[in-house]
Nucleic acid binder design. Structure first.
Lengths: 205, 205
DNA sequence: CCGGAATGTAGTCACTGTCAACATGCGCGT
DNA sequence: ACGCGCATGTTGACAGTGACTACATTCCGG
């Protein structure tokens, strides 16, 4: 009789739970992704999530995957927006944009960024890097461009991926949680450019 | 009559709590530093800690300070062990040792390392870097050596501290929690050397 | 020698993750 | 058309946590 606003079976719970968890992670970080709160916001009882995820870690892993994809998209967008035509200048600028996009994302979405690397999920590098997807693959593609156009020697290409990633990742972490966290925002961009200069000279110079 | 093995007043509780918390952090990381467990191991009731620390975060901040000091000592020891006499070679090697010591510490004491940078404590860089203590000051001193002996131009000195720190910090984090976490240990040292090469060329080259 | 302040204790509350038992109703086979 | 299985959602419980309040004990200064 009474049309129930809440049908017993939600019908589409799993993706809703993930979306809700992502929203929570955005505002409160990993520790804010609390199963009971996620269920509450999804309008469902606690424990309902256990029909779709083994435990809290599994849900966080899913959020991590979303964040990784989000970061990858942000990076790719910025890379594609580079309009320079000279191959070397183009590839060089695309690498810089990769780094800027990474740091920008970390500062714009600190919660998601933390979950992305905090959950024991995501791609591993151990095996062949070229087979991977995600932010790491995007970086590798840009670095390969630099080799293809002769800006970087194949020898210096070795370990360049890890060096670039470590640099921007560490820079982001120091700004977010480390000793750089109270550097005013207008001094952050110049600092990043200086850091990218070091990377650039280390690879090209 | 009965000599009480546990006097009502512990008498020296605060440092014991910190030590216990450090021990817990070493084995279980930040999330393992649980007030009730710390109290339990100290042979004292829960809540006793609240006479010495405002809350859990305050205790973690204390642990963070210990970890920072520990890291600083590890770095300084390795730096002092460099025996080269040529000023440039010596300063260069001391910088490399700084980086190696940082990463080594992060991998050897992952729990403490995480607490060191996870707690909202520790020195800020915002103001004059030279006035600071801790790992950042040690790094700055080594970089100043490189300038003093002419290996690095004053212009490139700007931002070099942040670049170095970001690199080794990010490298450590990627190894500990990130996509590099299953790189086998025998491949980690070469990777670190490659990363340090990039930094070296970026600063000196 | 006594009384207040410092220190430690007991008890409680709200909250969490997780498990087990139970309720519901969708969809498939007959 | 029908009934039943089983995926899905609910209720209730339990242990563990941080934090708060009230209380107990002991130390120290007058």
């Amino acid at each position: 009789m009474t049309e129930r606003s809440q049908p017993y079976h939600h019908g589409n719970l799993r993706p809703v739970l993930i979306d809700t968890a992502v929203a929570l992670a955005r505002t409160t970080g990993p520790d804010g992704v609390v199963l009971r709160e996620v269920a509450r916001r999804a309008g469902v009882s606690h424990n309902a999530a256990y029909r779709h995820f083994d435990d809290r870690a599994a849900l966080l892993a899913e959020v991590s995957g979303c964040a990784m994809a989000d970061l990858e998209a942000a990076m790719q967008t910025r890379i594609d927006a580079v309009t320079l035509t000279d191959p070397v200048a183009r590839a060089t600028e695309r690498l810089r944009e990769t780094g800027r996009a990474y740091v920008d994302y970390a500062l714009r979405e600190p919660g998601l960024f933390a979950v992305a690397f905090g959950a024991p999920e995501g791609p591993m590098v151990h095996s062949d890097p070229r087979a991977l997807t995600g932010p790491y693959a995007v970086l590798n593609a840009v670095l390969d461009e630099l080799v293809d156009c002769g800006a970087v020697t194949p020898e210096r290409r070795l370990g360049a991926d890890v060096a670039c990633w470590a640099m921007v990742h560490g820079f982001s972490d120091l700004l977010l949680h480390g000793p750089l966290r109270d550097v005013p925002s207008d001094r952050r961009a110049p600092l990043l450019e200086a850091v990218l200069d070091v990377i650039g000279r280390g690879l090209l110079g």
